[in-house]
């Protein structure tokens, strides 16, 4: 009875995982498809993996996407972590106000955030392009960092920091050796969340970019009607494989560290 229950549980998990990964499997298959058409199998080829690197439209969109995600996640981590320190020490009312503001972009619809930023940039006479997209991405990334760092700060006891000071550390040393290692996991997960959200964003980029600056999302959306270049399938398959390998490596080193 228990065994049957366990098998059923695993079957259920397996089904959901299949549901989540089925489209990725489809993309993987399409990357080897000789036919340029999504709904027609024309035989096996590695052609798209070769031509990917000479497809300027796709490659420049890839670099733009990665660059924006990296810079946005980094700057959001700096601004957000500093803000988290301040919010952590606030009294009840200002704290609630700050958290309220932090929650706005997270709970608001992307399309509203997108049009509001578009109208702001227009009102300021800003030219649309790389920089406007970057500003927009930093904006929606900051709350993820604040909300990841804040719990680490409130868990941390103040006495460790004070003990370090008593033992002769300067405030900066105490911060670097005591406080920073404690909150680092929060900062890192905030950074990763911000990076992921930036990488996957389409709506906000769509409204704040110019026709000549493309991220992968906007390139794909623009291609969608006239047919996706198969190089995109090759690129996404490569990205997926790289990410899986990185995760496995990370998991292994983590296990090793834990064993020690």
């Amino acid at each position: 009875m228990v065994k049957a229950g366990n098998a059923l549980k695993k079957l259920y998990i397996g089904l959901i995982i299949f549901f989540l990964y089925a489209p990725i499997l489809v993309l993987l298959v399409l990357s080897f498809n000789k036919s340029r058409f999504r709904n027609h199998w024309g035989g096996f080829t590695l052609e798209w993996y070769r031509s990917l690197f000479s497809n300027d439209e796709v490659m420049s969109a890839l670099w733009t996407t990665l660059l924006i995600a990296l810079i946005a996640a980094f700057l959001a981590s700096v601004i957000g972590t500093a803000a988290a320190f301040a919010i952590n020490k606030m009294k009840k009312v200002p704290k609630a106000m700050f958290l309220g503001i932090t929650n706005i972009p997270m709970l608001n619809a992307d399309i509203v955030t997108a049009i509001s930023l578009m109208l702001l940039f227009m009102a300021l006479g800003f030219s649309f392009g790389f920089f406007s997209v970057l500003l927009a991405h930093i904006t929606f990334s900051i709350p993820y960092v604040v909300l990841s760092v804040l719990p680490k700060l409130s868990q941390m006891s103040r006495s460790n920091y004070e003990a370090a000071l008593d033992l002769g550390a300067t405030p900066f040393q105490a911060f670097r050796k005591v406080v920073f290692p404690e909150i680092l996991p929060g900062v890192l997960s905030g950074f990763m969340l911000a990076f992921t959200m930036s990488l996957d964003d389409f709506i906000i980029t769509w409204f704040t970019t110019s026709p000549d600056i493309h991220t992968l999302s906007t390139v794909i959306y623009a291609m969608q009607r006239r047919g996706i270049h198969p190089e995109i399938y090759a690129l996404s398959s490569l990205m997926f494989i790289v990410i899986v390998i990185l995760l496995i490596l990370c998991g292994r080193t983590q296990n090793k560290i834990q064993k020690k």
């Binding site: 995982i17 989540l20 990964y21 089925a22 489209p23 990725i24 489809v26 993309l27 399409l30 999504r38 709904n39 992921t196 990488l199 996957d200 389409f202 992968l216 999302s217 794909i220 959306y221 969608q224 996706i228 995109i232 399938y233 996404s236 990205m239 997926f240 990410i243 899986v244 995760l247």
Partner: peptide
């Protein structure tokens, strides 16, 4: 990680893959 991983493949592309399905 298993449930976040798909999010690193562009969501438009995954949605387009549903067309094929």
């Amino acid at each position: 990680m298993v449930f976040i991983l798909p999010m690193w493949i562009n969501f438009l592309l995954r949605t387009i893959a549903w067309l094929t399905i």
